[in-house]
Nucleic acid binder design. Structure first.
Lengths: 155, 155
DNA sequence: CGCGAGTAGATGAGCTGTCAACGATTTCGT
DNA sequence: ACGAAATCGTTGACAGCTCATCTACTCGCG
């Protein structure tokens, strides 16, 4: 069948390029910032935020993985490294012999409490402040729309 | 001074979360797609596209690195790997004894010509088709705006 | 009960990215 | 012309991600 590809037209390509470059630059800068400000990687940061904000500092392994939408293997390696640095600890789950809880240690709380304000400040400076409130909410709405659309699509 | 952090308000946070999740999901899906469709990594793809589209198949090493906004070290490793698989080759630069050209091989051209249409199709399916032309151009405009704003900011 | 299927999570190999150091040229100031 | 500094690109060590595989446990069913 091999229909001729429907290449992007000039405007589509311009929009796509801007989006891609913006997103790469933004994410790149933010993660370098987290790294140099706090010594944590962006992954460390996300795990600790999720664990403390949404799980009260203690969460089942797979729930945590689902929350941040990571594969369990990635989470497992990540937790191993973070445990080695004392940011989290593993605990056995009494209800399910296979299971494990991931717990934020005091050092983990300390790390995230120091890093979070700086991170928010950078998000504000680089992203939020670039737009008016209306524009920001538009961007949020459009993002949500793309997200919902993707969820209906096959991989 | 330690001013209290200006946390994101409810609407700011909602917009930020939607954007982040959308962007992660989209990039994740696209790069897995490139991988399984063509056997190339997303990085291979970007390098070959840049090299062939914008450089006519031959480009100075650092120009290529700047074009895709990568560190030279990353590019160097990437080129080494791609050269090993026959997608590109290095050539000495006659004008500058330190320099090098990166050249797309015939196999490299073949690979990118096969992969590009599928990639565009996925971009269309996951992203472009989620929005009306107006919405798409709005998203592009807002992205550009954030990008321009970031370029005025320190790291 | 006992067996097979499914689930929770760990682990190892191999590839990718980052950081710091390095060698090789070129450029620039004097 | 000569030494210092800047530029071009590579390399090695190390952390991170992915994929396949593995163990241990639970659950459902005969």
């Amino acid at each position: 069948m091999d229909a001729p590809p429907r290449w992007l037209d000039r405007e589509e390509k311009a929009a796509w390029d801007s989006f891609i470059r913006m997103q790469e630059t933004l994410i790149g800068r933010l993660s370098r910032r987290v790294q140099t400000d706090s010594g944590m990687s962006a992954s460390d940061y996300i795990v600790l935020v999720s664990l403390t904000e949404r799980g009260g500092g203690r969460m089942r392994f797979l729930d945590l993985a689902k929350l941040v939408e990571w594969e369990k293997s990635r989470m497992s390696h990540q937790v191993t490294r973070m445990a080695k640095r004392g940011l989290v600890a593993r605990e056995d789950c009494p209800d399910d012999g296979r299971g494990a809880f991931i717990v934020a240690t005091p050092a983990g709380y300390k790390a995230i409490e120091e890093a979070a304000p700086q991170h928010v400040e950078h998000v504000r400076r680089l992203f939020i402040d670039a737009l008016t409130p209306n524009q920001l909410s538009t961007l949020g709405r459009l993002s949500k729309r793309v997200l919902d659309h993707m969820e209906k699509q096959p991989d």
